[in-house]
Amino acid sequence: MAETVKESEHSPVSRSDWPFFVCFAILGGVYVILIVGLLVAQAAFTSPAHVLAALASPEIRYAIRLSLLSCTLTTLLSLWVAIALGYLLARFDFPGKRWIDAVVDIPIVLPPLVVGLALLLLFQVGALRWFERHIMGVTFEVPSVVLAQFTVACAFAVRTMRVTFEQISPRAEAVALTLGCTRAQAFWKVVFPEARRGLLTAATLAWARSMGEFGPILVFSGTTRMRTEVLPTTVFLEFSIGNIEAAAAVSLLMLLAAVTVLLILRRAGSQGTLDRALRP
């Protein structure tokens, strides 16, 4: 009998699990509430009249147009690079691969203003300086906006496409080669159709990154109205002259664009690819 009592003294004590869940829920919930609070504050501060007033401004209309055009162009350019580089990195081992892999990550970790300054300096030397003087103006002109967006957005697209290609088995391509395909035919007929979801993920990610890009544009493109003004520039300019209503209205437009992109990514894109691409 005494044995039994002793045993029960050492048995695990049954206690409630709810303190654990409450602690974790509070810790996690703080952040979720912060983000929801941001959205609510943004929406509450902005009235439809503010948005309409912002949309009536020719400068802001120009900024919306330039943002949409430059982001779309940046996305198209990024996808071509991302398909090529992502495929090479995913499939082949070659000298300097680790080095190239690290280089592609630089735009992701570099402070945005530094990216802008580096672009500015790049166009002060050699062939690019000549190009700018004799062929086409880039710095502080519209092309600089696309280039600044492309520099950062493309890195995200490359990572996404690399993960996409890594998830597709190389065996199918190998069989396609035995069936008579060249490398190019095997890629376009077999691999590429399977990469469509990843391509959509890369496109939306690149587009969203470009839409929010400001640091590099501030330095490399300047903030000239009706010339290099994109939506983040508008928020910055309106805010700096104390026009909080317009800044908030434009922010709301960008927020809606971001939420739309997020919905597309969640529904149509491949979530697994996105998660792995964003993983540091």
């Binding site: 065996r171 035995t178 007929k189």
Partner: peptide, 27 residues
């Protein structure tokens, strides 16, 4: 591989996920 004229059936079959059976047969 393309010039060897060999029919190859790998162990994992490696079918083409986005093509129909008909497209496999006439690939």
């Amino acid at each position: 591989p393309a010039e060897r004229g060999v029919g190859y059936v790998p162990q994992d079959r490696a079918l083409f996920a986005s093509l129909t059976v008909r497209e496999h047969l006439c690939f």
